[in-house]
Amino acid sequence: MKIRVGVLLLLALLSGCDDSAPAQKGFAGLGDQAVAFTPVVPGRVFSFPADHGLHEGFRIEWWYVTANLKDAQGHEFGVQWTLFRSALNAAPQAGGWRNQTIWLGHAAVTSATVHHAAERYARGGVGQAGVQALPFNAWIDDWQFSTQASGAEPLADMQLKARDPRFSYALRLTSSRPLVLQGEQGFSQKSEQGQASYYYSQPFFQASGELEIDGQRYAVSGPAWLDREWSSQPLTANQTGWDWFSLHLDNGEHLMLYRMRHKDGAPYLTGTWIDAQGHAQTLHAGEISLVPQDTAKVAGRSMPVVWAIKIPSKQLDITLHALNPNAWMTLRIPYWEGPVRLRGSQGGTGYLEMTGY
């Protein structure tokens, strides 16, 4: 999905403002009931470009970009850019300071030896952050993900930029391939009880541009991936975190997997196989073997940074290694997110996110 972590942070901060608030349910409150908000139900008909914009009535949503990049010398890098929207109530949002929306941005860069992460916060209604569908523009302060295309598909040609004292990047992302609806025609289930999000991706972006880390500049290029989701209650009270994978295979195919871990019982496991033309096939738990192989001590936690993935129906048997095992997002709510390398029946690159450890 990624069910993205900034939303969790917003909910945690908001609940923490009231000492009388009840204990959170599920990971970072995402299992809390949200009866006043619009539910996620099967059968939605997606409409583009409108669905690139925000969705009032839903509690949470995000625009999430990751990129696996190399320079001319073969040095590998990862880039993350995320914008999260959290609604404090389900009513239509007013303008100005009466607006009840909170925005959060995360940006990060990773190399084999360095990982930097930053975050920004904004109040809705005053222009500091927001999203518009046409022409598409998502921003928080001077961090921006916006269209440069003039045709019917605004995501065909994008610019992505973020800046922090320790790093910056300015990338162009292009794709002529179709968007991919995850799950069952965009209905992405997260539990056996039916919790879900609306979820689509653009896994076919090609990125190029400039990256700066600690004063050193690099000209870089490589594949990138956009995840778009919105929901109101995507988890159950029993779900403690997740492991999320978005993978670019060398043969042009793509794979998205996630397992939602529980306090007790087996994880909820599913995924999507995307062929080189953009056709998507849902993968169910019985078709997937996803097993941690090795761990690293990261920020006082034991994190699984090597994984084995097998999908027999696709003749896939790979091992996934973190480019930098210390890709720890040292933010208000910390989590692990970074680029990975693939070895085995297919080579490739991708991104891994792990929460709740």
Rank of each mutant, 00 (worst) to 15 (best):
174 T>D: 02
174 T>L: 03
174 T>F: 00
176 S>R: 10
176 S>V: 07
176 S>F: 01
177 R>Q: 15
177 R>M: 15
177 R>A: 15
178 P>C: 02
178 P>D: 01
179 L>R: 15
179 L>E: 02
180 V>G: 02
180 V>R: 05
181 L>R: 13
182 Q>A: 15
183 G>H: 10
183 G>S: 06
183 G>M: 08
184 E>P: 00
184 E>A: 11
184 E>C: 06
184 E>W: 02
184 E>F: 05
185 Q>H: 15
186 G>A: 11
186 G>D: 11
186 G>Y: 09
186 G>M: 06
187 F>P: 00
187 F>D: 06
187 F>Q: 00
187 F>H: 15
187 F>L: 04
187 F>S: 02
187 F>N: 06
188 S>K: 00
188 S>M: 03
189 Q>K: 13
189 Q>I: 13
190 K>N: 15
190 K>R: 14
191 S>A: 14
191 S>K: 07
192 E>K: 11
192 E>H: 10
193 Q>Y: 05
193 Q>S: 14
194 G>C: 13
194 G>Q: 08
195 Q>G: 00
196 A>C: 11
196 A>G: 08
196 A>D: 04
197 S>G: 10
198 Y>I: 02
198 Y>V: 03
200 Y>A: 05
200 Y>T: 00
201 S>A: 14
202 Q>I: 00
203 P>Y: 04
204 F>R: 08
204 F>G: 09
205 F>E: 02
205 F>R: 10
205 F>A: 04
206 Q>K: 10
206 Q>Y: 07
206 Q>P: 00
206 Q>M: 13
207 A>C: 12
208 S>H: 12
208 S>D: 14
208 S>G: 06
209 G>S: 04
209 G>Y: 08
210 E>I: 10
210 E>W: 07
211 L>Y: 13
211 L>F: 07
213 I>M: 13
214 D>Q: 14
214 D>E: 15
214 D>F: 09
215 G>D: 10
215 G>P: 14
215 G>V: 13
215 G>M: 10
216 Q>R: 13
216 Q>A: 14
217 R>V: 11
217 R>D: 01
217 R>P: 01
217 R>W: 01
218 Y>V: 01
218 Y>C: 06
219 A>I: 10
219 A>N: 14
219 A>D: 14
219 A>W: 03
219 A>M: 07
220 V>Q: 06
220 V>R: 06
221 S>G: 13
221 S>I: 03
222 G>D: 03
222 G>R: 08
222 G>Q: 02
223 P>K: 11
223 P>W: 05
223 P>N: 12
224 A>S: 12
224 A>D: 05
225 W>S: 09
225 W>V: 07
225 W>N: 04
226 L>Q: 11
226 L>N: 12
227 D>R: 08
227 D>F: 01
227 D>N: 12
228 R>Y: 02
229 E>W: 01
229 E>D: 11
229 E>R: 01
230 W>V: 07
230 W>S: 04
230 W>I: 02
230 W>T: 05
231 S>M: 03
231 S>Q: 07
232 S>V: 04
233 Q>V: 05
234 P>T: 12
234 P>F: 07
234 P>E: 12
234 P>V: 09
236 T>P: 03
236 T>C: 01
237 A>W: 05
238 N>E: 15
238 N>K: 12
238 N>Y: 05
